[in-house]
Amino acid sequence: MANWIDACAAEDIDEEDVIRFDYDGRTFAIYRSPDNVYFCTDGLCTHEQIHLADGLVMDHTIECPKHNGQFDYRTGKAMRAPVCVNLGTYATKVEGDRVLIEI
């Protein structure tokens, strides 16, 4: 059953950037793409459990701050070694000035 969580204000995330969002013992990464669309993935890199929110967003990829693994944050797909396991992704929607994620 859909469980929409109010995660942050739309303006909390710069364009082409990411923030960390912790909820109920879990951690997520919420992205704002260069074309102003919001996405959400698991918060930790699948390689060594590093918070992706410290990493670099370029276009539609997030690069892990530690070992340079890359994911397409729209799909969670692992794009570059050392990562080989995809990230889980979660639906988002914007209501008013708030970003909600479905977990």
Binding site: H51, D54, G55, L56, E63, P65, K66
Partner: peptide, 10 residues
């Protein structure tokens, strides 16, 4: 931690 990671990547 990873405070400088983003700037190093850039």
């Amino acid at each position: 931690g990873n405070a400088i990671a983003k700037d190093i990547k850039l």
